[in-house]
């Protein structure tokens, strides 16, 4: 990589500043940002799919699987290393996506969405039926450790936060690089006209399969990160409403940039958190109305605020 794109700088700089400022920030801010990064990973995966014209209503499948893989590692094998948990979450999700991909990559539009949703609901049903994993109550994920060192509560929060920031930078660079590859740059073409892509000699199915696996790995990573941040996981993560919320944040963020999903999740989580606090009886109404405003005025997502300004400048 000779030159790092400007949008990447927009991501890396604040993250670096946040990492440095982390120890001085209130704990709840660290938590909110870490959680938003976790969800941001899932949304980033969905954004990649959306650029190809695909919407998944079942990304909760991989989000939940990643969380359970990380959780089970701690519960069964007693492993709590932060890196191992994250990697195992992403790997488990990617593996399942690789297998399901042979089937799912043939589907488009609403059928892709509903098939993926059906799979995530089946996982939900299986987990609810599994008493050993706590059924619908789920189970607690052990406090993550760093290279075997167990830290106190406050330092753990900062450690997970710093690891999340670092992971974000790595992932953003990776995705950015991927989009420059031939396979990655096919996305808009597939969205516009699959047949033409095939005539050009590229395999649409292969391109979608790869993308599906990448999106799943990101969702698994996000699930593992969310699981260890919250400290508890349950089958609700695979429920269709969870997946629906991710799609929601994806559209809200816009597909303009790798940075958008993280910013979008942060804004979404913040709005929701304050709506809960100041409007405990009507937070759904506040949330719904805020989103309508975004859809109507920023049809390309919140990211378009930045791009529009840049164009004007």
């Amino acid at each position: 990589m000779k030159r790092i794109d400007r949008t990447l700088l927009v991501l890396i700089l604040p993250l670096a500043i946040l990492m440095a400022a982390g120890p001085f920030l209130p704990q709840w801010v660290l938590f909110l940002v870490t959680l938003s990064i976790g969800k941001g990973f899932v949304v980033l995966g969905l954004m990649l799919l959306l650029r190809t014209g695909l919407v998944s209503f079942g990304q909760g499948l991989f989000y939940c699987l990643g969380a359970y893989a990380a959780g089970a590692l701690g519960k069964v094998l007693g492993i709590s290393d932060v890196f191992l948990l994250l990697v195992s979450g992403a790997a488990a999700a990617a593996l399942l996506a690789y297998i399901l991909g042979f089937l799912v990559a043939q589907y488009r539009d609403i059928f892709f969405a509903m098939l993926s949703m059906a799979f995530s609901m089946i996982l939900y049903g299986l987990l609810v039926k599994t008493a050993a994993l706590g059924s619908s109550d789920g189970f607690n994920v052990p406090v993550p450790t760093l290279f075997g060192a167990k830290l106190v509560e406050a330092s753990t929060r900062y450690m997970v936060f710093a690891v999340a920031c670092a992971a974000t930078i790595l992932v953003a660079l990776g995705v950015h690089w991927y989009q420059k590859t031939t396979l990655g740059s096919l996305s808009p073409a597939i969205k516009d006209n699959e047949l033409r892509v095939e005539y050009m000699g590229a395999s649409v199915r292969h391109a979608i399969h790869v993308k599906f696996v990448i999106a799943a790995a990101l969702a698994g990573l996000g699930g593992a990160l969310t699981g260890m941040t919250v400290g508890h996981i349950d089958p609700e993560m695979a429920y269709w409403t969870t997946s629906g919320e991710f799609v929601f944040v994806t559209i809200l963020s816009g597909t303009g940039s790798v940075v958008a999903p993280f910013l979008g999740s942060l804004i979404f989580e913040t709005i929701r958190s304050y709506a809960y606090e100041y409007s405990p009886n009507t937070w759904q109404m506040v949330l719904g109305a805020s989103m309508l405003l975004v859809i109507v005025f920023l049809p390309l997502g919140m990211w378009s605020i930045f791009t529009a300004r840049r164009k004007r400048a």
Binding site: W28, V230, H232, E236, Y276, E277, P280, W283
Partner: peptide, 23 residues
């Protein structure tokens, strides 16, 4: 201070932390 319990565990842990650390 009243908080809605709806929304699942992830949201509840977030709100709990907010209650303790922000409020």
């Amino acid at each position: 201070v009243y908080i809605d319990e709806a929304g699942g565990t992830t949201k509840q842990v977030t709100e709990y932390r907010n209650l303790v650390q922000r409020q």
